[in-house]
Design a protein around this nucleic acid. Sequence first.
DNA 1: TTGAATTACTTGAAGCTTCAATAATCTAAC
DNA 2: GTTAGATTATTGAAGCTTCAAGTAATTCAA
Lengths: 136, 136
Amino acid sequence: MAATKPEEIVRLLMNLSRSLTGYYDTKLAELHLTVPQAMLLRQLGDALPMNEAAGKLHCDPSNVTGIVDRLEARGLIERQHLATDRRVKNLALTASGRRMRRRVEAILSAAPGVSDLAAPDQAALLALLSRSLPRQ
Amino acid sequence: MAATKPEEIVRLLMNLSRSLTGYYDTKLAELHLTVPQAMLLRQLGDALPMNEAAGKLHCDPSNVTGIVDRLEARGLIERQHLATDRRVKNLALTASGRRMRRRVEAILSAAPGVSDLAAPDQAALLALLSRSLPRQ
DNA sequence: TTGAATTACTTGAAGCTTCAATAATCTAAC
DNA sequence: GTTAGATTATTGAAGCTTCAAGTAATTCAA
């Protein structure tokens, strides 16, 4: 039997990732939310400095500014100045943001395809993925 | 033992995907190429209508226009009008594009993390991923 | 043959992403 | 206390991405 080409694994991995993102994108569109907006809402169980939000989202802090602008314009979150450090702006959900976050969580907790695997296969996949992840 | 949460698998999947893309991005930056530009070059073993290039890249045709603009400006590819159907523009590598494509292939064929798995584990991962991919 | 659909590509708007540069604030060393 | 250096958030530029709309060319049917 021929050796598995890592290249082929990468191809499948990217396809699956694109497929999942596409699913979330479609579901979230019903709420008029984008994937990055939903990812940010998900992190806001507790108020969070923009700074730390960028860390959770694995993106540049300057990126958070725009996402927050749009969520704030819709009244889903608000920037709160921190009294102890006036550079920092805490992101906090509004009442309507809290309701939206519950709907977002329901959508993001689904995993079409992956959840169809039998439990032992899911465990195996989890193990293999975590061993493929460099560092941490 | 608690059931594996599909959500956790998705998280790892996205992380691995981001990690791989980050690796390619860094390596390609040395060639002053972006990941989408490299992905397009990789497809151009033979000349291809922009149309079909969009299909291979799983993206909107309008997206190809901009990527091609930039690669063409650097003299790596060229648009060739098809005589038999003057709507179609074939994308073809220039001589310098062919050299660049070889360097791109060397970079994209690497799979850090994944390639460190033992052969049987790679085979298992391949199988699990392909079974997680919805349809076909 | 001509008029209506279809197809290929492009453009513009909106949003995401990164990087580099900037303003405001804070910390620490002097 | 003042100043030099870090840190937080923002802005602007460049590129990617999608969708909607537009143009040019082709196909097909009446």
